[in-house]
Design a protein around this nucleic acid. Structure first.
Lengths: 203, 203
DNA sequence: GAATTAACATACAGAACTGTTTGTATAACG
DNA sequence: CGTTATACAAACAGTTCTGTATGTTAATTC
């Protein structure tokens, strides 16, 4: 039965949400279109109407995830006279809090971490690499400014610190997402980052 | 044609090696037994003779990976008067060097990171969690001893430091393994860890 | 308001994969 | 040296999944 344009968009969103849950629970390659359809309350026909195949569905799901706004971060860090460390600490803590509360983001990041990017999904991996590199680049720039002002402990170089910081953030999130959420991400993450950053300031 | 006992064990190893490569390239759930058999130079019959099914094959592959010897690490760290930080730094660096050189270990760890542990593979995930927790526990104990001797910077608590250290290591390895080995793991990892640890010592 | 087309549901054909069964040559054993 | 069990290969049966083709209903268009 033909539905209105708005209704069609609604079922499209239903399918995306269902795919997100099913992909998260069973893994992308273990999930069948039938299962996604069942979870969305439609038939496979509806899915194949809106999406070409499973890879396309995955790509659209990936495109629907809100990316961290690097521009905003970068701009705030470039303000003159700002305490770079405090800003970075606050931003990292905010990111952890958002992730800890937003179950959709948790599911999508888990899916992205575990799926295998051989073949059609390669561009998704490339884009993730690009986002990560951009984060490192922004942090490096910020730490370089702190270093120029003599605020960065001499044992760190901006590059090494930016990398290490991102590694720690990634390890923290991976441990939480992939290994059972066995601790309070926001609280313990903020605590660890806070202590880490405290040690960065020049004595 | 029946083969000798030793020959049978050889084909079993061939199958395990082939599974390792195929699982790594296509992901566990995307790999078919036929592909593994082809890569091993046998037929599916041989695989089903040696292993019950794909899960069993995966479990045996997992069991064949040499685990880090926590006992040795723990014992070395408990020596009286040892420089805890130096030992930990050296051990972490050694681990990174081993990983950077041992392609088999790289493949197996990549497989373990990306496969989904729903159902039969759950015990593998549980064991990985246990190993991680044990690492954190050992480090915490070591850092606690350093703290007692007044060698640990006051802004760190042993627990928080152990967690943060493991997060950084995990993030480092995950970034390298899952996102294209785009840097020198041993060199850059050692550099970051060295700088990090330098900041831990009490002023 | 008849024709058209969008938004699906249903049915179908085929591929792929799994697990088992059967066949078989030969090593191992008495 | 005959028998038996082993280490597979090959064939088979059954299921599951995918992609498409067709059917159906209601919105839209003219």
């Amino acid at each position: 039965m033909r539905r209105t344009k708005a209704h069609a968009e609604a079922t499209r969103q239903q399918i995306l949400h269902a795919a997100e849950r099913v992909f998260f629970e069973k893994g992308v390659s273990n999930a069948s279109m039938e299962e996604v359809a069942l979870a969305a309350g439609v038939t496979r026909g509806a899915i194949y109407w809106h999406f070409a195949n499973k890879s396309d569905l995955f790509m659209e799901l990936y495109k629907s995830v809100p990316l961290p706004q690097e521009d905003m971060i970068a701009r705030e860090l470039e303000v003159e006279g700002v305490d770079v460390f405090a800003v970075i600490e606050r931003m990292a803590a905010e990111w952890l809090e958002v992730l800890a509360k937003d179950e959709q983001r948790q599911r999508i990041l888990s899916i992205l971490l575990r799926c295998d990017y051989g073949g059609e999904l390669a561009p998704v991996l490339a884009q993730q690499q690009q986002v990560f590199d951009e984060h490192v680049r922004i942090l490096e720039k910020a730490f370089a400014r702190a270093a120029e002002m003599g605020k960065l402990d001499r044992c760190w170089t901006p590059r090494a610190l930016a990398s290490s910081f991102c590694w720690m953030m990634k390890g923290l999130c991976v441990e939480w997402l992939l290994f059972g959420r066995r601790f309070d991400l926001a609280a313990e993450g903020r605590d660890g980052l806070s202590r880490f950053i405290r040690g960065l300031r020049a004595a």
